[in-house]
Design a binder for these strands. Structure first.
Lengths: 135, 135, 135, 135
DNA sequence: GTGGTCTAGACCACA
DNA sequence: GTGGTCTAGACCACA
């Protein structure tokens, strides 16, 4: 993972894990990597990983069992829920940010469409946990 | 101005001034309020206002003339340029943020359209500098 | 048994066994299941069951006879003693916890009575050791 | 503050601050001590205090302004809300804990009343921030 | 081996 | 001076 500057690392890890769940790379009930392992993989302090996991737990996205490990929640439809809420949240933030310009809906859509064209799609989203490591 | 928590105040001031210029509330060549006055109006630390003005100068949006004051740049088409660049920047950031979900263009447009419907437009955008204060 | 998250499993097992004794589901002198059996039944690490039994022994609630097995103490009045001490302990902890609010006795009783009304009683308390397994 | 063993310090600090608000020792809108000051007072690591404050902020009980400090929320009726929710929560936990004993309501009340008598009331609850320090 | 808490201390962003 | 993040590393509880 290449962390962005100016965005807390623990947030970036949290978002990445959510994304992996949303996209089905991490399945409900599946065990997550241990704090130590993930911190070693990401070359980050264990506390930073711990904080990301803690946030996920606060949101009901994963559960920890002391001594056993940490697992993705088995909540039905979790990936769908995450995917929907994440996209909607970002869309809402976007619209709020440009609201002050008082563009009408058609103009907003036109701008989005225009930028979509320029936007080079980058389809690589490597899951944090690779298939080989899942066992 | 009601400042949002967790977003630096200097950024909120800077954005507000840019918006005022983009929307024509502040015209090219017009004098800006002094750091002292604006900080008093906004009930904010003068350092904070200074930082916002400095950013605007760095971007060529305003100029300070020692002993005279600070003025909006007279660059032709400044409001249009600002408006375009601000909206495009935000759109680009938005698309980058949701890129990882690998939605196709049609879906993105549909989501935006859907949220546009829910979004309650708030047409009030009071300029930071009121007409009475312009002298 | 459905273990609660964030409460050590060994404690939950220990409490459950005490409760079974207090309620007469496990009688004084009766043999307890082996660590191996109980851990299999509960799908739990044997170390965890061992720890629960050890605590019970430390409290004089059960005794192990090498080669024979582990038995509930034959102490006279054990169930009554347990029942009383467990309820009193919890009550004391509760009162200590709310002491800082400086409520007078009447108010405390009123609050308890109010919550008692809301509290849905869950009368199912299946003993850990079923009759069939007692042999 | 004398911290209890086996209960995380950050939780004890959090609870103490909530209690101070509930009892009116800390008023809505009032500035909280800085992380550094409180950590020095309590002889605890700043990170530990930070964590307690963060929890309070997550619960909407206080707000932080970077560079300015941290303040108790000005939410109307916050002290009452906190007092009620804290007492009710503890009462509910208590009743759940003794539920397995299947005591009827009258018995529960009798036990509580009995323990109330024995309970030595300790009316000292020194606020974290002393009046002299409030300025 | 797993998660959870805590310390000592650095360094940054902001007002 | 404020809050926020992060590191390095210890030590505990639990399974």
């Amino acid at each position: 993972m290449n962390f962005k500057l100016h965005i807390p690392i623990y947030l970036q890890i949290e978002e990445k894990l959510k994304l992996d769940i949303a996209l089905g790379h991490l399945m409900p009930g599946q065990q997550l990597p241990s704090v130590r392992d993930l911190s070693a993989t990401l070359k980050v302090n264990p506390n930073t990983v711990q904080r990301a996991f803690q946030s996920l737990e606060d949101e009901g996205i994963c559960l920890s069992h002391r001594g056993l490990g940490r697992f993705v929640s088995e909540e039905a439809g979790l990936p769908q829920r995450l995917r929907l809420s994440m996209v909607q949240l970002r869309t809402q933030e976007y619209l709020e940010a440009i609201q002050a310009f008082e563009l009408d809906g058609a103009t907003v859509l036109a701008v989005v469409q225009e930028q979509l064209g320029k936007h080079i799609s980058n389809p690589s989203n490597n899951p944090v946990i690779k298939k080989n490591e899942e066992a």
